[in-house]
Amino acid sequence: MLEVRRAVRAWATAYLPGGGPVAVGLSGGADSLALTAAAVVEIGEVDALIVDHRLQSGSGQVAAEAVAAALGLGCRSARVFAVDVGTEGGVEAAARKARYEALDTARAGLPVLLGHTLDDQAETVLLGLARGSGGRSIQGMAAYAEPWGRPLLGVRRATTRQMCADLGRTPHEDPHNLSPEFTRVRLRTEVLPLLEDVLGGGVAPALARTAEQLREDGALLDVLAEELLEAARVPGVAADEPGTAGDEVALSIETLATAPAALRRRAIRSWLLDSGAKALTDRHLRAVDALVTAWRGQGGVAVGGGSPDTRLVAAREHGRLTLRGHDRCPRE
């Protein structure tokens, strides 16, 4: 119990210097239940937000029990939000999207504490490693990425379960957490135990440490990349030129080309996202980077984003890297 409380206290000291109130995303499971109990003691004013995904029969009863538990622990309020889970990206991704949207809508400007533990962090790092999208994809979850706070990233899942037992609370066991059809469940029940056995233990903490170190390195690289981006900015093409999307900002090819690859790609990624690009992949980023460092007369690179009528295309033009909206279909 003390370990969880100390973790919440340390998080509040670092990220909530003015004190509460906070909201907590409460599922009724051991992790969020232990987090809620610790937050009430260490922070004081806590609103419990319970999302009912309605994916299982009896989910309304589970949500009602979570409300009762929250109020019993001393939360000043507890509310349930029923959501409709879509199908895009699979059940896991769709449920996560619906959950975060509901929490963001309901939080009323408060930071939202989430019960992710060190074990969740290790699983996230492994998933990122499998994607192969570079250091950013294996940085894991941040302790605070506004409005989401994760005080328990240094706490093991077994510790939150023990805290619930110490408090005499019986957490809800989500059947989905044992279903092998979900990738994260197989990581939890098959892959990580195998790695622990083969490597002699300590794998989850080692993965979490790696994530923390990469986040620290990434923060510095982001600062340097922003400086490069500012140095590379040049006035964009005029808004009334054919094919332009408006007040554009172009980047100097010469300035980008002389920068180290790690900084250049980070700067390009930031520029693309700030300019409206969506769902950037490593393939997109490398193709745009090739316009700077390996140009052989190739055409522009279409990236996600734009509008129903236009698509965003990055191109090399007159020594500049530009991003413009192009008609998706030729005009009549």
Rank of each mutant, 00 (worst) to 15 (best):
Gly89Ile: 10
Ala93Cys: 01
Thr105Gly: 08
Ala82Phe: 04
Gly60Ser: 06
Thr322Trp: 00
Gly218Ala: 15
Arg131His: 06
Pro330Lys: 03
Leu35His: 10
Arg296Asn: 09
Asp104Ser: 10
Gly132Phe: 03
Leu195Gln: 03
Val41Gly: 13
Thr244Cys: 10
Leu221Pro: 01
Gln61Leu: 07
Leu263Thr: 12
Thr210Asn: 08
Ala30Gln: 10
Thr183Gln: 10
Leu220Glu: 15
His116Gly: 04
Pro308Phe: 00
Gly201Cys: 08
Ala63Trp: 03
Val292Thr: 07
Ser137Ile: 04
Val22Thr: 13
Thr310Ala: 13
Leu224Ile: 09
Gly168Ala: 11
Leu220Gln: 07
Val203Asn: 06
Ser179Trp: 01
Val85Gly: 09
Ser275Tyr: 02
Leu207Trp: 09
Ala239Phe: 07
Ser57His: 05
Asp240Asn: 12
Ala38Leu: 04
Arg328Asp: 03
Glu212Ala: 15
Arg6Leu: 11
Glu332His: 04
Gln298Gly: 12
Arg269Pro: 04
Gly243Trp: 05
Leu285Glu: 12
Thr210Gln: 07
Pro193Lys: 02
Leu73Ala: 14
Arg264Ala: 13
Glu227Asn: 07
Gly89Gln: 08
Pro193Tyr: 02
His326Gly: 00
Gly140Ile: 10
Lys97Tyr: 04
Cys75Ala: 12
Met1Glu: 11
Asp274Cys: 05
Thr293Asp: 09
Ala82Ile: 01
Glu123Gln: 15
Tyr100Phe: 15
Leu71Ile: 08
Leu220Phe: 13
Met141Thr: 15
His172Glu: 01
Val91Asp: 09
Ala82Thr: 07
Gly218Ser: 15
Leu220Cys: 09
Asp104Gly: 09
Ala48Gly: 06
Ala208Tyr: 06
Arg107Asp: 07
Val62His: 05
Leu214Cys: 06
Asp240Glu: 14
Glu92Pro: 05
Leu73Thr: 08
Ala145Phe: 00
Ile43Glu: 10
Leu114Ala: 14
Ala158Gly: 11
Ala82His: 02
Arg161Cys: 11
Ser27Asp: 14
Ala106His: 03
Ala64Pro: 00
Phe182Val: 02
Ile50Ser: 05
Glu123Asp: 12
